[in-house]
């Protein structure tokens, strides 16, 4: 069953990315997601970027549903179910947070709960950087060098890991980036948590659409931890189409 919520505030965050705020009394852990239904259009999963009373989802325009959502106004309604899934577990010690593109939306509420941490915010260019003003003292990386470190988030992360000691890595972003971070964490023997994404249908763990190596992103994830992440050989390599057919990424 859905709950109908009214959009209280809409904010332009970055190129093609908007945040929608609404009231929902359900408790949400950082890393969990809602299923958002736009009646007559589509239903899709969306991680929660603000987890307090005034909830928020930060939406990148990527398809039919998200495009329709970008055209919505304050006062319009959303149909939601959830929150679903397992979120991030806050580990002791110093954390390195690596967010690529709209992946920062998932990591933002986690960062608010951390005490000792450093954050890398990365994107293809400076127009697509997300939440650089929401958090102080962040490191920035852009693929084109238009702001901050010129190169991939994973390259900047390796430099930081070389210079400092971290106890845990949290990451969310494009899958090749996350796969690389998992590889780096494994090599260095550091714990890692990553929020994964797969084409999702039911959101409640029964349809097998979003499974990766036999684990359901919607229920067993979306946040997975090491050592399970180290064993997932489909990560960064294979995914499934809506039909279930396995294809190369």
């Amino acid at each position: 069953m859905y709950r109908v919520v009214k959009i209280e505030k809409i904010k332009d965050e970055a190129k093609g990315i908007k945040t929608f705020r609404f009231h929902d009394s359900h408790k949400v852990e950082p890393g969990q997601f809602y299923m958002i239904w736009l009646p007559g259009v589509d239903e899709f999963p969306m991680s929660v970027s603000y987890v307090h009373d005034l909830k928020g989802v930060t939406v990148k325009k990527i398809g039919k549903g998200t495009e329709k959502m970008h055209g919505m106004k304050e006062g319009d309604k959303l149909w939601i179910r959830g929150p679903y899934g397992h979120g991030f577990k806050v580990e002791k010690g110093k954390a390195l947070v690596v967010g690529g593109g709209s992946g920062m939306a998932t990591l933002a509420p986690l960062i608010e709960k951390l005490k000792d941490y450093e954050v890398i915010i990365a994107a293809r260019n400076k127009e697509e950087l997300l939440f650089t003003e929401r958090f102080k003292d962040v490191k920035i990386a852009t693929d084109d060098g238009s702001l901050g470190y010129h190169g991939f988030a994973t390259e900047l992360a390796e430099i930081m890991l070389e210079e400092n000691t971290y106890d845990v890595i949290y990451t969310c972003g494009p899958e090749p980036m996350m796969a690389k971070m998992v590889e780096i964490a494994k090599k260095r023997g550091i714990k890692i948590q990553a929020s994964l994404e797969r084409f999702m249908k039911c959101g409640i763990g029964i349809c097998d659409s979003c499974s990766i190596n036999g684990y359901r992103v919607c229920v067993d994830g979306p946040v997975f931890s090491s050592p399970l992440l180290f064993e997932m050989d489909e990560l960064g390599k294979e995914k499934r189409r809506p039909s279930g057919l396995k294809v190369k990424i």
């Binding site: 069953m1 899709f44 809506p242 279930g244």
Partner: peptide, 25 residues
Amino acid sequence: GYENPVVYEFPGHMGLLNAIGLANP
């Protein structure tokens, strides 16, 4: 298979209504 929504969950553990639409590889 069909476009989302393909599953509806009734409140109070009253079961599911689904039309996945024979999605298969």
